[in-house]
């Protein structure tokens, strides 16, 4: 029971990070029907930006941790969003009217390019960060086994939930969200009622990248080590989460992220840690076979 509870806490934390990345996949898919395979690497770039900013801030004397983290969060969101915007502008917008597969291929190319850029500019070795947020609560103890809820876990879940609420409100309440949904349904008509479609799509990439930056900072603080390759696996897991939740659906991405995080954690805890990725990806296979539109997605109805 205690062991289960501990794994549940770990799983929810991991799931939050996956969920944040998955939103980027799902929003982009929703609006232009394309899988942005470079999104995982945008997340990776986000972790590096967060690390560099943090070290930079500490070296100029900002040592009050909450303030430093706040600044890191804002700076890395802005810079990573700029990366997301640039990737869209350079690699996807020129191909918007091209055949369907073209942006997918450039996305894979972009992913490789970002990985190699970081590998060359930052080195291939793992980059450590000492634990910044320490401490936590012992919520239960039995037979010498202590269930821990650390401060960093609380922070991750709280930030994730808060961002989820903010982004859901943007999508459902604001003019930007309305135009995003309009573009999703009929890009031509949206343009004819005065929506700047290109800008709306760019802003979607910007929002996705900003969330990936938050996920990046959380990842950095939680695990403490990053390298240029983390974006690949995290990205594919988040993509699995988006498909599981129903790609195109915002709550679906969050739910999918949670489920993937929980499956991975419990599988590692009760079966074998070597096969945790197999377990997560098996879910992708099963979902695609039995529930192609995902848990909360709308089935696509082809009109004849």
């Amino acid at each position: 029971m205690e062991y289960f509870l501990q794994q549940l806490i770990n799983g929810v934390t991991l799931g939050s990070i996956y969920g944040l990345i998955a939103i980027g996949y799902t929003m982009v898919y929703g609006i232009i029907g394309m899988i942005n395979f470079a999104h995982g690497d945008i997340f990776m770039v986000g972790t590096f930006i967060a690390l560099i900013t943090f070290i930079g801030l500490v070296s100029i004397g900002v040592t009050f941790i909450p303030l430093a983290l706040m600044l890191v969060l804002i700076i890395s969101m802005v810079l990573t969003a700029a990366w997301g915007w640039t990737v869209e502008r350079l690699a996807y917008r020129p191909l918007r009217e091209s055949f369907r597969l073209a942006p997918l291929i450039t996305a894979i190319g972009m992913s490789i390019a970002l990985q190699n850029f970081v590998q060359i500019s930052q080195g291939a070795r793992v980059k450590p960060l000492q634990p910044v947020i320490t401490g936590g609560y012992e919520i239960m103890e039995k037979d010498g086994f202590i269930v821990n809820l650390s401060n960093i876990q609380i922070m991750i879940v709280v930030v994730t939930v808060a961002l989820m609420i903010i982004f859901s409100l943007i999508i459902s309440r604001t003019a930007l969200g309305r135009s995003q949904r309009a573009c999703e349904q009929d890009r031509v008509m949206a343009s004819l009622v005065g929506v700047n479609v290109d800008r709306t799509i760019s802003l979607t990439f910007v929002m996705g990248a900003a969330l990936a930056a938050v996920a990046g900072l959380m990842f950095l603080l939680y695990y403490g080590v990053i390298d240029f390759y983390i974006g690949f696996v995290a990205g594919i897991k988040a993509f699995t989460a988006a498909v599981l939740g129903g790609i195109g659906s915002l709550p679906g991405a969050m739910l999918g992220g949670m489920i993937i995080g929980l499956i991975e954690t419990f599988w590692s805890a009760y079966f074998s840690i070597e096969y945790k990725d197999v377990a997560a990806f098996s879910v992708l296979v099963l979902v695609l076979i039995f529930l192609p539109s995902g848990l909360l997605g709308r089935p696509e109805i082809e009109k004849v």
Binding site: T174, A175, R178, R181, D186, V195
Partner: peptide, 24 residues
Amino acid sequence: RLFGGMSVLENLLVAQHHKLMKAS
């Protein structure tokens, strides 16, 4: 060519997008 998945009112609000984006 309506935005079929959106409500009737939202369809009309999208048409006023430009004004609302500026105001927000």
